[in-house]
Design a protein around this nucleic acid. Structure first.
Lengths: 218, 218
DNA sequence: GCTTCAATGGACTATTTGGTCCGATGCAAG
DNA sequence: CTTGCATCGGACCAAATAGTCCATTGAAGC
């Protein structure tokens, strides 16, 4: 998945720049609306209006609503991975993990925990009703976890983490804490539970550091 | 919130047993259907059919769909708390926590991680669109966490946990791990991530035990 | 037994919403 | 310029769905 053209269509003959731009507008509008209202509660007319397009355009670029949703899953997944790659690809120390944590917490605190994680909310809403969407979301989570575990591997290889640390399990645990934190923060409309959850996961990772430092997670 | 009559209506004059039974059937059907399809994707006709009732009964017992959903939030919350109370009110040891973990994992593995937690999925779907539902769900999560933290308090008072252990934070972290685990397991259609997440949280709690034992979490 | 009202069956309505269609327009190639 | 096709506007359609209404039934109190 490349960093550019995250909205590029799969295959069709002769696609103009104007068409690509429209498709991008539609996906962007769907992305914003479905983040706050949820997938099923967002109508095509909502998207049409927000994207300044027409019904025929929606159906020119997407076969039906389900296909639009599936495209959105990939679109949002690419955006998240792009953002996360920027914050994780150079991860080499525990303090880097803390900075990553702080960025997520700060972003979520801006809206008092509302909306949660765009991927997590879609996962719960779609996993039981669209196998393709579920599969795609699952792959995105795996890729996201891999960004973390790669960093942990680097930390282990450089001697920061003990050899018995399991980067894969640690990253899965951290991702679960993040997603659960998003969920509880969303329900409470307060970012606090997310902080507690992430700090727990970070403390756990910290316990695998070779030289436990007094470094705070705050 | 009492253990019995979880479906009892709020207030109305002269309510017959038959009426209560019908209300219960409706809520039970809504509970089952909305767990697998989600709230917004479940129609009143679905519920009417599954509950063997009629349109007039739905609107006799509930003002509209939103009220039915709000009643379901309380209904499901009461059911979960009832179940969790049974498993947590006698919690006094780390092995009790492990048994609790195993019960949740086993239940979720029966359907390969599908559906997730009934409260968590509702939380993400409703928190941004129904303030009353969100508030109710938030209270339920708090009550659930309190069942855990009460147990941790007992463990701390009895000298099992160190004095610097914070039962409230630990229970919030554990709940986040549980909810995140449910979410990832649902996306992966595999209970494994939920196990990893819960084990991480339990390891973290274990690190606060006064006498670290070799007790396995598996 | 009579009265009263909760409870019920189910047809019916209004609105929302996903989806279709066709003529118009813009753009690029020959 | 002309032709072909992607793109577009928006009216229109059909199905789904929330919600209404009224006649009927059943049960509890007098």
């Amino acid at each position: 998945m490349s960093d550019e053209q995250v909205a590029a269509p799969t295959n069709r003959r002769r696609i103009s720049q104007r068409g690509i731009a429209t498709r991008e507008r539609i996906l962007d509008a769907a992305n914003r609306l479905m983040l706050v209202r949820g997938v099923n509660a967002t109508t095509l007319d909502d998207i049409r209006e927000a994207s300044q397009t027409s019904k025929s355009q929606l159906y020119h670029h997407f076969a039906d609503k389900q296909e639009l949703v599936r495209a959105l899953v990939k679109y949002r997944g690419a955006l998240v991975l792009q953002r996360e790659r920027a914050g994780l690809e150079r991860l080499r120390s525990f303090s880097g993990l803390v900075r990553w944590r702080n960025a997520l917490v700060q972003a979520n605190s801006l809206n008092n925990g509302k909306h949660g994680c765009g991927l997590g909310s879609m996962a719960l809403e779609l996993s039981d009703q669209d196998e393709q969407a579920r599969s795609s979301l699952s792959e995105t989570f795996e890729a996201w976890e891999k960004l973390i575990s790669d960093g942990l591997h680097r930390m282990r290889d450089s001697g920061l983490l003990r050899q018995d640390a399991d980067p894969e399990k640690l990253s899965t645990g951290l991702m679960a804490a993040l997603q659960g934190g998003y969920l509880l923060a969303n329900a409470a409309h307060d970012v606090a539970p997310m902080e507690v959850a992430l700090d727990m996961a970070l403390e756990h990772i910290k316990s695998f550091l070779v030289q436990p430092s007094g470094e705070s997670t705050h």
